[in-house]
Design a protein around this nucleic acid. Structure first.
Lengths: 204, 204
DNA sequence: GATTATATAGACCAGTCGGTCTAACCCCGG
DNA sequence: CCGGGGTTAGACCGACTGGTCTATATAATC
């Protein structure tokens, strides 16, 4: 199998064709969605030929999408746990996370949203690898939020409900932000969700 | 127009080709998104030829999408105000609205989400008619929520913030519901948002 | 009935789609 | 020097894309 060695050390040149394909696919899906992104466009973005795509992803576009979603989920999970470590509690984590997402959106001039959401809306639920990856991504995200909230002393059932609600609010806010070309909905959603989480803590 | 219209698809009502095109487009966008839906598919669903499409919508797919979004926005706006009239306050309206959306999702076996969100994520923000329609749809929706909340005595600034947050939560919940093939996120989001609105009212 | 807008009908177009396939490359142990 | 994986390279395919065009049918007006 391919060496996982090189790590994410340098982005400029030596990433494997596989990694470049995943990165290009994720970026393009964020910008224009799944169906609107052609294979040739991904290939051009990655600087790879078609042969490589079907070598690494025998299932074609759906398989590549699944890998891209998985990578995005991992990245966001990491960001979430970093934010948690930095701020110490779940509410602060959500605020920091929202601020980070808002910054990302601004930096891309509101062209890039959530790569998971686009695929989620364009794939028939349940059938292929991409749909499965979407489900897993949301589940991982929700679990990370839920854990952090219950670590603050909130009962696990309530923590999970708050996690789902927070996730929904942020995902929805990313859509509104893209449509309005404004990061305000994301910041507002994170702020409101954080307040709700704070209010749910035992000692208030 | 046509009195008895023995048309294949919609025999019951003599909807014009224009209306049938809008309805078919909205339905297909809900199910598979904007880019994945071909013109021929829409035409077949509407039982109309290409000539009619470009007669009613000279701007082609984007123009049709704008009309479909507009129609969806009107429908949802109407549903919202009906729910408001039925329940009497903003929180009840949001709950009833969530229940309605949850029912719609279940009835479609979670294949149909929000037709506005799909287009919102697949269109480059700001350029064409469809993007404009998306912005307007969200704005109308938010305004309706905001008005209802402030009618309960909430300060207008806070009411607008709550409206935006509620909108984001519901939109996001629709995505999660589609991915997980469960209406629970929608019901939960409506419940949480309603509680938040109740808590914001002056006399509690 | 004649004339004019409105609307239907679908053949046709150049371009692109996702996907398959063969040829060759690169770099390894021998 | 040789094979021979793993990988790159891109020509090629049939299906389909959104869009244009001309011809015709229907409705309304004179």
């Amino acid at each position: 199998m391919t060496p996982d060695g090189p790590e994410p050390d340098t982005a400029r040149r030596p990433a494997s064709a596989r990694d470049r394909l995943i990165a290009a696919a994720a970026r393009l899906f964020q910008e224009q969605g799944y169906a609107a992104t052609g294979l040739n466009e991904i290939l051009a973005g990655a600087g790879a030929p078609k042969g490589s795509l079907y070598h690494y992803f025998p299932d074609g576009k759906a398989g590549l999408a699944a890998a891209a979603i998985d990578a995005a989920a991992s990245l966001l999970e990491t960001s979430l746990s970093e934010a948690h470590r930095r701020t110490g509690d779940a509410a602060g984590m959500v605020e920091a996370y929202g601020e980070m997402l808002a910054g990302w959106m601004e930096a891309s001039h509101f062209r890039r949203g959530c790569p998971v959401a686009t695929v989620a809306l364009e794939v028939t639920p349940g059938d292929d690898a991409a749909a499965q990856a979407v489900r897993e991504a949301f589940a991982r995200w929700r679990a990370a939020l839920s854990q952090a909230i219950s670590a603050d002393g909130v009962a696990s059932q309530r923590a999970d409900a708050l996690a789902g609600f927070t996730l929904a609010a942020i995902e929805g806010a990313l859509i509104l932000a893209r449509a309005d070309a404004s990061a305000e909905p994301v910041r507002a959603a994170a702020r409101e969700a954080a307040a709700l989480i704070r209010a749910a803590r035992p000692q208030g």
